[in-house]
Simulated assay, not measured.
Amino acid sequence: MQKFLSFMLIVFLPLTIIGNLMHFNEILLFGLASLTIIPLAGIMGRATESIAIHSGPRIGGLLNATFGNAVELIIAFLALRQGLTQVVQASITGSIIGNLLLVAGLSFLVGGVKYPIQKFNPSIARTNTSMMMLGVVVALVIPAIFTLQNDTIANQLSLVVAVVTLALYLLGLFFSLVTHRHVFHFTEDMEEEAEWTLRKASIILALSTLAVAYVSETLVHTIEAVSHQLGWSEVFIGVIIVAIIGNAAEHSSAVLMAWKNRMDLALEIAVGSSLQVAMFVAPVLVFVGWFFGNPLPLVFTWPELIAMTLSVLLISFLCNDGESNWLEGAMAIGAYIIVGFGFYFL
Rank of each mutant, 00 (worst) to 15 (best):
L170E: 01
Q156S: 14
V163W: 13
L148R: 14
V141W: 10
G172H: 13
L134K: 02
Y169I: 00
L177Q: 01
S176F: 15
Q156R: 11
I145V: 14
T152A: 15
L166P: 05
T179F: 11
L148V: 14
S130W: 12
T152D: 14
M133D: 11
V163N: 03
V178P: 10
R181V: 07
F146W: 12
N155G: 14
V137S: 09
V137G: 03
A144N: 09
S176N: 15
V161K: 03
S130M: 12
T179N: 06
L177F: 13
R181Y: 01
Q156P: 05
L168S: 06
L171D: 04
T165S: 11
Y169W: 04
Q156A: 11
V141F: 08
A154E: 01
L134N: 02
V163F: 15
M131R: 05
L170A: 03
Q149C: 11
M132Y: 00
M131G: 09
S158V: 09
V136Q: 01
A144M: 03
L148K: 15
T179G: 04
V178R: 08
T147Q: 11
M131W: 06
I145H: 03
L166W: 08
D151L: 14
S130I: 13
V161D: 04
T152P: 00
G135D: 05
A154N: 09
L171P: 01
V164K: 09
V138G: 10
I142A: 05
T152Y: 10
Q156V: 05
T129R: 01
F146Y: 11
F175V: 07
T147Y: 12
V163H: 05
V138N: 05
A154T: 05
Q156W: 08
F174W: 13
T129G: 03
Y169A: 02
N150C: 07
Y169Q: 02
Q156F: 07
T147P: 00
T152L: 13
D151R: 14
L173D: 07
L173Y: 00
V141G: 00
L168K: 02
R181T: 07
L134V: 12
T165N: 06
A167V: 09
L134W: 10
V141A: 06
M131H: 10
L173R: 08
T147S: 15
G172Y: 12
L157V: 14
L134Q: 02
L170Q: 08
M132Q: 05
T165I: 04
M132N: 06
A139V: 10
L170H: 07
L148Y: 09
L168F: 09
S158Y: 03
V138H: 01
